[in-house]
Computed example of a mutant assay.
Amino acid sequence: MLPITENALRGCFVNCTKGEAKRLAVPRDLAERPWPDLDFLGWRDPASRERAYLVAESGGELVGVALRVAPQANAVRRSMCSLCLTTHPGAGVSLMTARKSPQSASSVGTYICTDLACSLYLRGKKQTEPGGRLHESLTLAEKVDRTTANLAGFLHRVRE
């Protein structure tokens, strides 16, 4: 993924108003992000743990979605991210929902790594507990393609 500026981030959200996009908490470390290793930019709002944001390139443009993170019970079992297929123990995967538009009461959801670090898990730059990444015979490029296809499917459901 190419580096993104704060202005570009704020202008790409499809499911919140311009005022909401102007007020959202943008990461302060944009310049230090590992851009070559990212398939999308995702972050949690430090002021509100039930808010998260995801920005990806889709159809030649940036698409951002504001997400709500569902509260979690104390889970002792493992869960799998629907995007990157990494398994995590306990609260490592969260149900995240996105409104379809700023005025819509409809939303869509999917299970995503709670820290939104799917790209780093795929590349082995961030580790889960042992057994978090299942052994696959796919190449890294194939895993990245699968993850971006899963993400594109989610973004398509948000935008339809």
Rank of each mutant, 00 (worst) to 15 (best):
A105M: 15
A141C: 07
G19T: 10
A8E: 12
K100Y: 09
L140G: 04
S101K: 03
W43C: 01
C12I: 00
L134K: 14
G132Q: 06
V69F: 05
C113S: 10
L122T: 00
G11V: 05
R159M: 15
L62Y: 09
S104D: 15
G42V: 00
V76F: 14
W43E: 00
E6Y: 12
R49C: 02
G132R: 02
A52C: 04
T17I: 02
L62K: 05
A56Q: 04
N15C: 04
V76L: 14
K18Y: 01
A75L: 15
F13S: 01
G131R: 06
C12N: 00
N74K: 13
L151T: 10
L54E: 01
V65E: 01
V14L: 07
S82H: 07
E20Y: 04
D37E: 15
T139M: 07
P34W: 05
A73F: 13
Q127G: 11
G153A: 10
C12D: 03
S104F: 11
C118F: 00
Q103M: 14
S107R: 10
A21F: 00
A152V: 06
H156Y: 09
A8C: 04
L151R: 12
Q103N: 12
L30G: 07
C84E: 00
R68N: 10
T139K: 10
N7R: 11
R33Q: 14
A47K: 14
A31L: 15
D39H: 06
S58Y: 12
T97E: 10
R123I: 05
H135E: 12
L9M: 13
V63K: 03
R23C: 08
C81E: 03
R28W: 08
E136L: 11
